[in-house]
Every structure is written in structure tokens, then in C-alpha cells.
Simulated scan of single mutants.
Amino acid sequence: MKPTHIEHIGIAVKSLDDAIPFYEKVFGLECYAVEEVTDQKVKTAFFKVGDTKIELLESTDAEGPIGKFIEKKGEGIHHMAFAVDGLNDKLKAAEEAGVRLIDKQSRKGAEGLNIAFLHPKSTFGVLTELCEAPK
């Protein structure tokens, strides 16, 4: 599996309203999109840094994945996302190589990407997302 690039770094925050101004004022970045992904119980905000994005993640439900993450670990880096071509084939190959999958098939994520997660127990403690632009 050879990623084409780092798609984004996901950062869990308690409040987009508090975090967005930090990235805009301190780093001079522009928040170009805010989107709610209802089925993932999250609201996202995106910033572009070169070819890579920063994705801020605010939980819309304390029982959602980001809500639970913040409750357990606090705010901070949640995941690393790699762009790949042929996402479902990459998932199958990863599973055959012994990687534990969270998603066995891709699903829709923010910005219209197809996404799937690899379990951090198989990726040295890093929740890893694979992303593919729809064709």
C-alpha cells in the first residue's frame, strides 16, 4: 500500500468556535470549510497547509467517537489520514497482511471522500485513516 500523500491530520477539539480563530490568527491559515458529518457525530473544519490539510473535529454527541476520545484523552491529535487509490483493494490487502481493520469497506466521510480506518493496535498506536476521492 503506497499512499499518494498525507491527506490530513485530524485534531479533536472541544469547540470549533474556539479552535478556528487560533489557527487563523496564530498560523495565518484560512478555514475554507465547516461541515457536519451526521453519521459520525462530528462537525469538521478544514485548513490547507501546502498539499496537506488540518481537520478539526468537534463532537456533536458526547457518546460519539470524538466525544469519547476527548473524554478519555483530552483534546489533541486524533488520527493521521493518507490518500490512496483503490481504497477497498488497499483494505483487503492490509487485512491479508494481518492489519486489524475498523472498516472492512469504505464509507462516506467529510468533503465527499471515501474513507476507512485501520485500528491503532495494528498501527503502533496511531489511528490511521485511508481516504480516496470519489471517481
Rank of each mutant, 00 (worst) to 15 (best):
I9V: 14
P134G: 02
E75T: 09
C31N: 10
K41G: 02
E24G: 09
V84N: 09
K2T: 15
Q105H: 11
M80A: 12
K73N: 15
H119V: 03
S15I: 01
G67W: 14
A94L: 14
K2M: 13
T4K: 15
I6L: 09
T60K: 12
L57E: 08
L91K: 02
S122M: 03
D61P: 10
I11K: 08
A97C: 06
G86D: 03
I77R: 00
T123G: 02
A83Q: 15
G125M: 07
A62V: 11
K108Q: 11
H79N: 12
V42L: 09
K68N: 07
V126M: 14
E95D: 08
H78G: 02
T128E: 04
H119D: 10
I9L: 13
K53V: 04
K68E: 05
A94M: 12
K2Q: 15
E35R: 06
F69M: 12
L101I: 06
R107G: 07
A12N: 05
L130F: 06
N114A: 13
L57N: 00
D17V: 15
F27M: 05
T44G: 04
G28R: 03
V26E: 09
G28E: 10
E30M: 05
H119E: 03
T44I: 10
M80F: 10
T128F: 04
S122F: 02
C131R: 10
G112E: 06
S15Y: 08
K108M: 13
K53N: 09
L87I: 12
T38Y: 12
H119P: 01
I11V: 14
K2A: 11
A93T: 14
K53D: 02
T44L: 08
G86M: 14
L56G: 05
G50K: 07
T52V: 07
T123M: 13
K48S: 10
Q105V: 14
E63C: 04
A110P: 08
K14F: 00
A97V: 02
L57G: 07
P21I: 11
D103V: 13
K121C: 07
K135W: 06
A81W: 09
V37H: 01
K92T: 12
I66N: 06
F117L: 13
H79A: 04
H8L: 01
T123Y: 00
E63N: 15
H79F: 12
F46L: 11
V37R: 04
A81Y: 01
D18L: 09
A110V: 10
F117D: 05
Q40P: 07
L91F: 03
L16D: 04
I115D: 05
I70D: 01
D85F: 12
M1P: 10
N88Q: 07
L118Y: 10
I102F: 00
